[in-house]
């Protein structure tokens, strides 16, 4: 199946998304003005460590942020339709139908007291108007599509009767049953063993091509991202600090954080004789306020300006943006481990 040509209008557009907890003086901002664009059929990755706000960002797209938080955005549109003003009822017609989501832990997404078949037919009835035998036949088809072994009998099983890998497939089947345009996959393989991880990533990629969906992949694993993403957004402390097409980002990182992460992962691949040069310190806790650039306390290239002025995300090359005062120097390799030695 061919991917449709990129139209002028993106599938998903978010401008200046902010998510915060609490009010007034006790307000803690978890996501600081994130902007994202996902075009049809494309895979966009949102990478970062725990507490960077990547999962909150993805939940905010579906207006599912947890209680006690508030989220605002200048623009939140899906295929040209404005979502900002939609109420809960209208949003529930979008969720599952046009934007679907799969999670790290299938047990939290699947209903433990309903069979897999029931959970798929529920989506089919609600969003596609399918009922009875037709819905059931479609449910078996969905399980076939996700390569569930023996789909005709698995359709009658409960989640607890399945193995971890099968549950992951079942969750994907439920998510895809209404034929969404966009699939948000939040750490879809993190809880799986490496051989299952490969199976599930291959499956997601195949389904994306066959169904022509766009995928927003939330992950901490740069290896997984490199294998599947067209465009990569790196998040740190609630902000996107770098965005580029995958090849550029992995070849020429322009933010010291991206570069250090890549270096760490590559050093790990090398033999035990190579010493790791880890990023010192820990990522800031969610909502922790750091003056200036939030990476400054851990950055090897930090200088005075970094502590006062928060660098905006700016264009540093073709289809390449970074939030660093000296991004050009970082791209040219300044201060890299090779440079220091």
């Amino acid at each position: 199946m061919s991917v449709q040509p990129a139209s002028a209008q993106p599938l998903l557009e978010v401008r200046d998304l902010r998510v915060s907890f609490g009010e007034g003086e006790s307000e803690r901002v978890a996501v600081h003005g994130v902007s994202l664009t996902v075009r049809e059929g494309e895979t966009v990755a949102l990478v970062g460590e725990s507490g960077c706000g990547k999962s909150l960002t993805s939940l905010a797209l579906l207006k599912l942020t947890p209680g006690g938080s508030s989220a605002t955005a200048d623009v939140l549109s899906l295929d040209g339709d404005d979502l900002t003003g939609l109420d809960e009822d209208q949003m529930s017609n979008i969720r599952g139908k046009r934007i679907a989501m799969v999670f790290q832990n299938p047990m939290s997404a699947l209903n433990p007291v309903l069979t897999i078949g029931h959970q798929i037919t529920e989506v089919l009835r609600r969003h596609m108007g399918l009922r009875g035998k037709a819905a059931r036949a479609r449910a078996v088809e969905m399980l076939e599509l996700v390569e569930m072994p023996d789909p005709a009998s698995r359709v009658n099983q409960y989640p607890h009767q399945m193995s971890g890998g099968m549950r992951q497939r079942a969750m994907i089947a439920v998510a895809l049953s209404a034929g969404p345009d966009l699939l948000i996959a939040d750490e879809p393989t993190t809880a799986l063993d490496v051989t299952l991880q490969a199976q599930v990533m291959d499956l997601l990629q195949r389904l994306q091509k066959e169904l022509g969906m766009a995928v927003l992949l939330i992950s901490h694993d740069l290896g997984v991202v490199a294998e599947v993403a067209d465009e990569v957004n790196v998040m740190y402390a609630g902000r996107i600090v770098e965005r580029a097409d995958a090849r550029t980002l992995f070849r020429e990182p322009a933010h010291p954080y991206t570069r250090a992460l890549l270096q760490t992962v590559r050093d790990l691949e090398s033999a035990d004789t190579v010493d790791l040069a880890p990023i010192p310190g820990a990522p800031p806790a969610l909502g922790q306020v750091i003056p200036g650039c939030s990476f400054a306390p851990r950055c090897p290239l930090v200088f005075d300006r970094c502590h006062v002025e928060s660098p905006p995300l700016r264009t540093v090359g073709p289809n390449h943006e970074a939030a660093c005062h000296i991004a050009e120097e970082v791209m040219s390799g300044k201060g890299s481990p090779d440079d220091r030695v």
């Binding site: 508030s70 605002t72 003003g85 109420d87």
Partner: peptide
Amino acid sequence: MAAIQALDVPAATPK
């Protein structure tokens, strides 16, 4: 700035 209304859930007790 347009608020995403559905998200304005009453705040829980601050930790």
